[in-house]
Each structure stands twice: as structure tokens, then as C-alpha cells.
Design a protein around this nucleic acid. Structure first.
Length: 420
RNA sequence: GGAGGGGUGGCAGAGCGGUUGAAUGCGCUUGUCUUGAAAACAAGUAUGUCGGUAACGGCAUCGCAGGUUCGAAUCCUGUCCCCUCCGCCA
């Protein structure tokens, strides 16, 4: 959520920033509602102050209230209730307007409304040839992927990994977690996958994207579409101790997405599915220097691609293509020679104070100082079924077997996948 | 699922209708003392919001949402969470 205070103080700046991402927020209505809000608060506060004074006096004097006082205070009480009710409707409308407004892009985010305007920042050394053997052909042939079983059990966009295919995914996840915790200083978290609506609202997934989320009606819990949601909720409503920042968390969890909005896209194979594993990095940092931290996290993700020997590139997303809660995003894509395309395996964003304002995560820079909102950053490190695809398609040998990247061998216990 | 108990400030823990935003202790900050530290003593130490350049003042908040009352941390209702015992179970 954007800061109402800042919107009111400088509406033009916010409008201009949001127009860059193709938004047209009702600024005039916001300003009008805020004016009403302030007036109503003052009105109610004045009446409450009067009532408090009278009641306090009665208490001090240890006497019964006079009939006149009772009548007058009843009237005051009624007036307060009316004003409060009016205030509640104003606040509700403000919330309804503000909650679906996305974060404002930072100045260096490129202009543009769709992925055509994304900018390739750098491309690694490496092969970008194609061999035409997509994972949906070669992996089932090796007996490590069963798409029919996935469809039979759960329907379209579900899959089953088998044997060395399952072990490969587990090894990838374990290796990535180890790098993140042992080399990059992240603390491993194993969070709940079902979260409250408030937690989902805090991360920015609600109310706007409820159609893409799975939910259990009976218990009113939502399945996380990414570990980001849970990690963002880790400190909601808290004031973080001044000396604990930065906080660095990493979690491997499944991600559940309905993918309604992507119906018809990427229907073959396991590139876009309803349930997938992902290792997610998440940081809480002080606002100062948070953009440098974003660059650092891009480095932490690309390191993984490099060590897996995957050709990759980094994209800076344009204003219209960054996620709802993001102020700046880099995507990392790896080359997939079988399906002949770049696969997005990581999306790394700074959400500035957008999420912490939503969920009330604050910190106190110094003892006695007033609280501030830390910045949050998140990024995949990395997304599993896609990195699995890349490893399979890049490791394909002349004889149809798959060569596994060396870094994984301590985890897999073998270096090659071949037909039985 | 059944039966009880409880949710108060950074922590511990009082208060159960009237100057209570809240005793007391611990912790923390600052000051005095000291060569320095400790101890002792003194003062300060929640969050949010509205007004104000500020000093400061008003209002709200004792899990959350309602209700009763001139007045609620205190009474009533609902709800969430935690704990204990029983049952069930990975």
C-alpha cells in the first residue's frame, strides 16, 4: 500500500509514477476522502474530549451525575456514534481504493507497458543453440517425468517426477538451500503453506489477485503462491529490534497458482504448472541502500545459474511489467535448448516499504527514535521445475542420456540419467 | 471432538466500574558520584492518529469485534489465539 500521507502531500508525483505502469488511480477521490476523514476525526475527538471531561469530573467529585448531565452526555454519545459510523465508511472506501493500487516504480525502471520494453542487462557466456528435444519428450522417455499420471491424479498442469527425476529436483533444492545458507548468510525457514487472508493482503496478493489463489473456504485459509507471502508475514505487526536488520531468510516451499490468467499459455510440459517447488530469498533491510541489496541478490541468483553451467541473462523489467508489489524487478532467464526459449527461473524485486506498510512491520533505527518501515526484497533462488527443465535439456547427450552438473553430484550420488 | 484456565507496556506481573495509558519489579536511556567500571541515587522510557513551524495539546488503543453505562482494562455477547486435562491421530 502506498502512503496516504505522501499521496496527499504530493499527488502529482504519485500520479505520474503510477501512470508509468498504466494505472489511473482516482487521486481526486482520495484527496476528497482524506479531507473528510480528517474533519470527521476532529469532530469525534472534540465530542469525546467533552464527554471524558464531564465523566472525569463526576468521578473526581464522587457524586451521581445530574439528570441534565446524563441527557447531554447521551446526546453527545449519539453524535459520536453517528460521526464514527460515517468515518468508518470513509475509511472503508479509502481502503478499497488504496489496497488495489500497485507500488510506484523507481526512477531507473524503464518506460513501457509490456514485456516488449524490458531491457536485457547482460547475457552470460554460453551456448544458445537448439537441439529440438524438449523435456516433455526426453524426460518421459527416460522414465523420470510422468505427465499422464499428473493429469490422472489432479488434472491439467500437474505432473509427477519419478526416480532420478525426483531425486534431481530434491538435490537441486538441497544444493541451492545450502549455498544460500552457508555462503550467502540466509537463515533457513520452513513456513506454513496455508495462510490467513490478512497475511495474503500484507504481501499484496489480496485483494487484487484472489482469482489466482487456492483457498479453503471452511477454515478461511489460502495456499501460498510463493514463500514470499509467508516470509513477508514473519514479522507482521512487530517492531523489529534495531540491531537485527538486515534479516535474510530463505525457504524452499511449494507454490500454488491457479494460472487462470495464463490459460492457453505454456500448456506443454512442466514450465507452467499449478504446484511447483521454489527456493525463495527474502530480506528485510533499512531503506538506505536497499537498491544495492537488490543488485546483490541478482548476483546470488545468477551465481547458481553459473555453477549449474546454464547460459543465462538478466532483464530489467519495464514499469508496466513489474509485479504489483514491486518497485523494481530483475528477471533471470536460462537458455533451454530443447524448447528453444529463455525460461524465467528467478524474479527479484524490491518492494520498498509497500509490503511493510501493509502488514505493519516496523523497526526502530535507534533506541528512542520513532519507528520506520523497513524495505523488503524477494527473489527466487531458484524456481525448481524450470531449472530442472534447463538441467535436463542442457545435459542431453548424443546417446539420449542426461549429464548432471558437477555441483549436484554430492547430492544425487550419480552423474548421469539414462534409460533403464 | 469434550472439560477447564488465560490473553494487560521490551519482559515479568498488579488492577476487576470512576483523575488508570495503566501499580510494582526487571530491562533500557540519560544525569549525579567515580581515574574508569560496578553499586547507589535521580529523571526518563508504548503505539497510532488529529491539530501545531515547534514547544505542546486532544483522541484512540489493556488479543479482536460489538453491546451496557454519564463513565469500561474492569460488566455482557461473539470471535481469534495460547495453556492444562481427556479422547483421537501423523
Amino acid at each position: 500500500m502506498l502512503s496516504l500521507e505522501q499521496i496527499v502531500r504530493d499527488p502529482e508525483t504519485f500520479l505520474a509514477a503510477l501512470v508509468r505502469r498504466g494505472e489511473d488511480p482516482p487521486i481526486d477521490r482520495i484527496l476528497e476522502l482524506d479531507g473528510r476523514r480528517k474533519a470527521l476525526i476532529q469532530e469525534a475527538d472534540t465530542d469525546r474530549a467533552r464527554r471524558n471531561n464531564v465523566s472525569k469530573a463526576i468521578g473526581n467529585e464522587k457524586r451521581k451525575p445530574t439528570p441534565e448531565e446524563i441527557a447531554e452526555m447521551r446526546e453527545t454519545g449519539d453524535r459520536i456514534k453517528t460521526v464514527e459510523a460515517e468515518l468508518a465508511t470513509v475509511l472503508e472506501e479509502l481502503n478499497e481504493i488504496l489496497l488495489p493500487i500497485p507500488n510506484t516504480p523507481l526512477d531507473d525502471v524503464p518506460d513501457g507497458l509490456d514485456e516488449e520494453s524490458n531491457v536485457i542487462i547482460r547475457t552470460s557466456e554460453g551456448d544458445t543453440s537448439t537441439h529440438g528435444n524438449a523435456h516433455w519428450d526426453i524426460a518421459p522417455a527416460l522414465g523420470i517425468l510422468d505427465l499422464e499420471a499428473g493429469a490422472s491424479i489432479s488434472g491439467a498442469r500437474f505432473f509427477v517426477l519419478k526416480g532420478k527425476g525426483a531425486k534431481l529436483q530434491r538435490s537441486l533444492a538441497a544444493w541451492m538451500l545450502d549455498v544460500q545458507t552457508e555462503e550467502h548468510g540466509y537463515t533457513e525457514i520452513d513456513p506454513p503453506l496455508l495462510v490467513r487472508g490478512e497475511t495474503m493482503t500484507g504481501s499484496g496478493n489480496l485483494p487484487k489477485f484472489k482469482d489466482n489463489l487456492y483457498r479453503d473456504d471452511e477454515s478461511d485459509l489460502w495456499l501460498v503462491p510463493t514463500a514470499e507471502v509467508a516470509l513477508n508475514g514473519l514479522h507482521q505487526g512487530q517492531i523489529i529490534d534495531p540491531d537485527t536488520l538486515p534479516l535474510k531468510y530463505v525457504a524452499q516451499t511449494p507454490s500454488f497458482r491457479k494460472e487462470h490468467t495464463s490459460a492457453g499459455r505454456d500448456v506443454r510440459g512442466i514450465k507452467r504448472v499449478h504446484q511447483f517447488e521454489k527456493v525463495e530469498m527474502f530480506r528485510y533491510v533499512e531503506p538506505e541502500g536497499s537498491e544495492e541489496v537488490l543488485e546483490e541478490m541478482v548476483g546470488e541468483a545468477t551465481t547458481l545459474c553459473e555453477r549449474l553451467g546454464l547460459t543465462h541473462r538478466v532483464l530489467k523489467l519495464c514499469a508496466g511489467d513489474i509485479g504489483f508489489q514491486s518497485a523494481k524487478t530483475y528477471d533471470i532467464e536460462v537458455w533451454s535448448p530443447g524448447s528453444a526459449e529463455w525460461l524465467e527461473v528467478s524474479s527479484i524485486s524490491t518492494c520498498t516499504d509497500f509490503q511493510t506498510r501493509r502488514n505493519g512491520t516496523r523497526y526502530r533505527p535507534k533506541k528512542g527514535a520513532s519507528t520506520r518501515l523497513p524495505h523488503t526484497l524477494n527473489g527466487s533462488g531458484l524456481a525448481l521445475p524450470r531449472i530442472w527443465i534447463a538441467v535436463i535439456e542442457n545435459g542431453l547427450q548424443e546417446d539420449g542420456s542426461i549429464e548432471i552438473p558437477e555441483v549436484l553430484i554430492p547430492y544425487t550420488g550419480w552423474s548421469r540419467i539414462e534409460a533403464d
